[in-house]
Amino acid sequence: MCGCHELLQHTALQPKTESNAVPLSSPHRRRRQVKLEYDNDDAVLPVKTERWEPPEWRKQLGFIREMRSSRDAPVDSMGAEKCYDTEAPAHVRRFQVLVSLMLSSQTKDQVTAAAMQKLRAHGCTVENILATDDETLGKLIYPVGFWRNKVKFLKLTSAMLQKEFGGDIPDSVEGLVRLSGVGPKMAHLAMGIAWNQVSGIGVDTHVHRISNRLEWLKKPTKNPEETRKALEEWLPRELWSEINWLLVGFGQQVCLPINPLCSMCLNQHSCPSAHKTSPTKRPKAGSPRSPSPTSSFKAKTEPGSAVKDERIKEEPLPTPVSPTTHRRKKTH
């Protein structure tokens, strides 16, 4: 009995001794297994969860607020939130906000405001736009940039609003970008102004340019939509509705597209682009550069950018509007 017991003990222990001998003969294998477990545990640590943000953005934003405190840039008095009829029904007001945003693309605020004034006098409602012939509508919105295309967009958008939304504008970004001539920038601005909802940052050429100059982005962006996504990754949401009008007015008065007024800027000592050469792409000779009489400062008026000058070249005078001499006088 004693011998059997010893045999059983020997048999039970033998496989364990043999199995233990395998990993012991492969020390590298055992170390690799331990290392893998350590690496996996280490990967879970929240080392990379810190949100990236520009080093001096709060100070720079504070200075921009200070420079914009007088609220006397063109966008402050003639932006989309100033162009609708405050006495009109709510759905008409929302439609007029959308129309002003559509007209503002590639167009100065002064020109957009004048066009909206004429449209409102004519009757800026979905029904009136649809009842107005293209020639008359062209006269009303001229000389906004790409006015011929915008006549088509206004008609197509009005038809869709009447058919699918009961004459009101959609209350979502997804619905707004379905409309002809409406992109993400307009959609987010319309959500904020018309519906009082913060859906995203409205990024135009000013916000795009200034964000890149201040290096408020992890890497340079190529277009406003890329800038919007990059800003929304780190900028606190409570600032999304404010950042557009702040930077647009700042871009109209100080951080100009060509020859920015760095010596007047409170951020000149922290801005990575301060006092550097302006972009090589400049307006062609003879392009309109005269300041607007409605601007508060002659030295702080947004000059025509290269993009706008190209637009003027591409857009010939319309047949409905004949006084070519008048346009030449305005643009020099």
Score class of each variant (00 low, 15 high):
1 M>T: 03
3 G>D: 11
3 G>Y: 07
4 C>D: 03
8 L>D: 09
9 Q>R: 12
10 H>G: 09
14 Q>Y: 13
15 P>C: 10
20 N>M: 15
22 V>K: 13
24 L>G: 13
33 Q>D: 05
34 V>I: 12
43 A>S: 15
52 W>H: 12
53 E>T: 04
54 P>T: 06
55 P>C: 05
59 K>G: 12
68 R>G: 13
71 R>G: 14
78 M>P: 10
81 E>P: 07
82 K>H: 13
83 C>T: 10
85 D>R: 10
86 T>N: 12
93 R>I: 05
96 Q>D: 09
96 Q>T: 09
97 V>L: 04
104 S>L: 03
105 S>F: 04
106 Q>W: 04
107 T>C: 15
125 T>H: 09
127 E>Q: 13
129 I>R: 01
130 L>M: 09
131 A>N: 10
137 L>D: 13
139 K>M: 11
139 K>L: 12
141 I>Q: 02
142 Y>Q: 01
144 V>N: 00
145 G>H: 00
146 F>K: 06
149 N>K: 09
151 V>Q: 03
152 K>E: 04
155 K>T: 05
156 L>A: 15
157 T>D: 02
160 M>F: 04
161 L>K: 01
161 L>H: 01
161 L>T: 01
162 Q>H: 11
162 Q>R: 14
162 Q>I: 03
169 I>A: 02
171 D>R: 09
179 L>R: 07
179 L>S: 13
183 G>D: 07
183 G>Q: 04
185 K>G: 00
186 M>C: 11
188 H>R: 14
189 L>K: 10
193 I>G: 02
198 V>G: 06
199 S>P: 08
208 H>G: 13
209 R>S: 08
211 S>W: 02
212 N>D: 05
220 P>S: 01
223 N>S: 12
227 T>A: 05
230 A>K: 07
231 L>Q: 04
233 E>K: 14
234 W>M: 09
235 L>M: 14
236 P>W: 03
238 E>I: 07
249 G>T: 04
254 V>M: 03
256 L>M: 00
258 I>H: 08
259 N>H: 00
260 P>L: 07
261 L>K: 01
262 C>V: 06
267 N>P: 09
268 Q>M: 02
268 Q>D: 07
272 P>F: 01
274 A>Y: 01
277 T>G: 12
277 T>F: 05
278 S>N: 06
280 T>K: 15
283 P>Y: 00
286 G>L: 02
288 P>K: 03
290 S>F: 04
296 S>G: 10
297 F>A: 15
301 T>M: 02
308 K>I: 04
311 R>E: 06
317 L>Y: 13
319 T>V: 12
320 P>V: 03
321 V>H: 15
321 V>D: 13
327 R>T: 08
329 K>V: 07
329 K>G: 12
